[in-house]
Simulated scan of single mutants.
Amino acid sequence: MSGSTYLVETYAMKMLYKEKMKTLEKEEATTHEIICNDQLKESSSSSSSSGGWFTKMFKKVHPVTTPSLDSATKSRTF
């Protein structure tokens, strides 16, 4: 009789574990959806207002050129 008690307890623990895992998966799925939706909203709002990452990738950078000291001294020697 005591052997069947362990089987019932094991079965109950297994069922509780399955239920717990199902609820954790549901919570994870909903939080993942929320995070994805938030990121989608942020990326769409930032891309529409500022032109997106594609335009930033090809942004022209104009370096500041200063006259070099070597060229100034060479012109004075001639």
Rank of each mutant, 00 (worst) to 15 (best):
M1E: 15
M1L: 15
S2K: 12
S4T: 14
S4K: 11
S4A: 13
Y6F: 13
Y6L: 15
L7W: 08
V8W: 04
V8K: 07
V8M: 04
Y11N: 14
A12H: 08
K14S: 11
M15H: 12
L16W: 05
K18I: 12
E19I: 11
M21T: 07
K22M: 10
K22T: 12
L24M: 06
E25Q: 04
E27H: 02
E27Q: 06
E27A: 03
E28A: 14
E28H: 09
T30Y: 04
T31I: 02
T31A: 00
E33H: 03
D38F: 00
D38H: 01
Q39C: 08
Q39K: 05
Q39A: 05
L40A: 03
L40F: 00
L40C: 00
K41I: 03
K41M: 02
S44I: 03
S46V: 00
S47D: 05
S47I: 02
S48Y: 01
S48G: 04
S48L: 04
S48M: 03
S48Q: 07
G51E: 01
G52Y: 02
G52N: 00
G52W: 01
W53I: 11
W53Y: 09
F54M: 09
T55I: 05
K56A: 05
K56S: 06
M57S: 10
M57Q: 10
K60C: 07
K60H: 09
K60M: 09
V61N: 07
H62E: 14
V64S: 06
V64Y: 04
T65V: 14
P67D: 03
P67L: 01
P67K: 01
P67C: 04
S68D: 10
T73D: 11
T73N: 12
K74M: 07
R76E: 10
